[in-house]
Structure formats: C-alpha cells, structure tokens
C-alpha cells in the first residue's frame, strides 16, 4: 500500500526533533561508530519510515531525467555534503563517526533550505540532500526487488568518493 501523507508527516516530523531529519535516534545512536557499510547506507538505514522515503524518492526519480544512476547520486551527495569542507571530503565520509555524519547531514539540509536549494516533490518542499537520499533508498529497494546481486551504490568507486 502506498504510504499516505500522514506517514510522510511522521517521517518529517518526529524525527526532526532529533538532530538529523528523517532518522530515528535508535538507528543513529549517539557516538556510535559507523558500521562497515558505506556512509550513505548508514544514513539510509536510519530512515524512520522507509516506505515514505522510497515513495518520495520514486517521485523524484520519475520527474528527474537521468537522475537514476546511483553512483552519480552518491558522488553528488558526497560532494554536496562536503561542500566547503575539503578535509572531510579527503578524509572520507566512511570514517566519520555517526554523530558527526548526522550533524553534517543536518547542517547540509538546513543550508540547502537557506540557499533555496530545494526540490518540490509532489508539493513537498524538500532540501536537495534529503531528496537525493530518498532517491537512493528508492533505487536500493528497486535493485533489491529485482534480485540484482550487487547494490548499485556499493561500488568501490562510490565508496571511495565518500
């Protein structure tokens, strides 16, 4: 069943009181080191309501021609997150503790809004970073659903970008 706007509402509300939009406290526990998965997968795993995120991501992908290449999306998002922070970029997002990754993402989302770098998806005015993450989750689930062996964004190239 399609997630309703009420679910979207949960997605963008309760979690927002925590530092990182879209993510529950449990999943992104304070100070916990990142698991071995790539940085962006750690972020994906934090979605409070994955179905809503997937739905938003699907809407976005449908209306963004050429936006459905996971590797490009991951690279884009990494660059975007590390904008003005060359040291973070060089150090690699994978090595950041979760708390820092969380803060980085939250600040980026806020900055996107401040800069007007927003995307309208089905009327929702969303930060570009959060929409890209939603798109990644949609791609990830589509790939998983299709039974493809490798996850699109887990290529070594993408991970290094982080």
């Amino acid at each position: 069943m399609k997630p309703s706007r009420r679910n979207m509402f949960q997605l963008f509300t309760a979690a927002l009181t925590a530092a990182l939009p879209l993510f529950s406290r449990q999943t992104l526990g304070a100070g916990r080191p990142q698991s071995r998965r790539p940085w962006w997968q750690s972020l994906l795993a934090g979605f409070k309501h994955p179905a809503s995120a997937r739905q938003l991501g699907t809407w976005y992908l449908r209306t963004t021609p050429g936006g459905d290449d996971a590797a490009t999306l991951v690279a884009d998002l990494a660059r975007h997150l590390c904008q003005g922070r060359p040291a973070t970029m060089a150090g690699g997002l994978n090595d950041l503790p979760l708390r820092e990754l969380k803060t980085l993402f939250r600040d980026r989302v806020s900055q996107d809004f401040a800069e007007g770098d927003t995307v309208e998806v089905d009327g929702w005015v969303l930060a570009r970073s959060e929409v890209q993450l939603c798109a990644l989750t949609a791609l990830a689930s589509a790939t998983a659903g299709s039974g493809a062996g490798t996850h699109p964004g887990s290529s070594p190239k993408t991970a290094q970008n982080g």
Binding site: F113, T118, D122
Partner: peptide
C-alpha cells in the same frame, strides 16, 4: 515560508499545487 520552516528544522511544508 516552506524553505524557512525547513531551514529552522520546524517541519516540512507541502504546497497544494495539485
């Protein structure tokens, strides 16, 4: 207004363009 609400971390706004 939607961007300001998002920027301040106060929630999200959906425009009823549909």
């Amino acid at each position: 207004i939607a961007r300001e609400v998002g920027r301040a971390g106060l929630g999200r706004v959906r425009l009823l363009r549909d």
